[in-house]
Computed example of a mutant assay.
Amino acid sequence: MTKVGENLNTQAKDKAKHVFVFLEVFIHEGGIQSYVKDIFRAYQKLSPGYQAEIFVLRDRPNSAKDWESEKLRFHGFKNQSPQIGRLKMTLALLKCLLLQRPQQVFCGHINLARLVQTLCQPLGIPYTVLTYGKEVWEPLNNRERHALTSASGIWTISRYSRDRSCAANFINQNQVKILPCAIDGNKFTPGTKQPELIAKYGLTDARVLMTVARLWSGDIYKGVDVTIRALPQILQVFPDVKYLVIGRGDDQPRLAQLAQDLGVSDRVIFAGFVPTEELIAHYRLADAYIMPSQEGFGIVYLEAMACGIPVLSGDDDGSADPLQDGNLGWRVPHRDPGAVAAACIEILTGIDQRCDGYWLREQAIALFGMDALQKRLQELL
Score class of each variant (00 low, 15 high):
270 F>I: 09
123 L>N: 11
2 T>K: 10
317 D>S: 09
219 D>A: 11
203 L>M: 07
368 F>M: 05
76 G>W: 00
134 K>D: 08
36 V>T: 12
180 P>C: 13
169 N>K: 07
139 P>D: 02
61 P>G: 12
223 G>L: 07
337 P>L: 03
74 F>H: 01
283 Y>M: 04
211 T>L: 04
333 P>A: 14
212 V>A: 02
60 R>H: 08
226 V>F: 03
52 A>W: 01
295 E>G: 15
121 Q>M: 04
338 G>R: 14
312 L>E: 15
16 A>C: 06
180 P>G: 14
378 Q>P: 01
288 A>K: 06
60 R>Y: 13
301 Y>A: 05
194 Q>C: 08
113 A>P: 03
300 V>F: 05
101 R>F: 06
114 R>Y: 06
377 L>H: 00
110 I>S: 07
346 E>L: 06
87 L>E: 12
357 G>W: 06
278 E>M: 10
64 A>R: 08
264 V>I: 04
114 R>S: 14
176 V>C: 06
179 L>I: 13
339 A>I: 01
233 Q>T: 15
294 Q>R: 15
303 E>Y: 03
318 G>L: 08
298 G>T: 00
212 V>P: 12
72 L>F: 02
156 T>Q: 13
192 T>S: 06
340 V>S: 10
62 N>H: 05
365 I>D: 06
296 G>F: 03
288 A>R: 07
115 L>K: 11
80 Q>F: 09
314 G>K: 09
35 Y>K: 02
127 Y>M: 11
30 G>N: 09
324 Q>R: 00
376 R>H: 09
343 A>Q: 02
226 V>C: 10
15 K>L: 11
277 E>F: 12
148 L>S: 11
158 S>E: 14
283 Y>F: 12
14 D>G: 15
214 R>V: 10
259 A>N: 09
142 N>E: 08
8 L>V: 15
290 I>H: 07
137 W>S: 14
213 A>P: 07
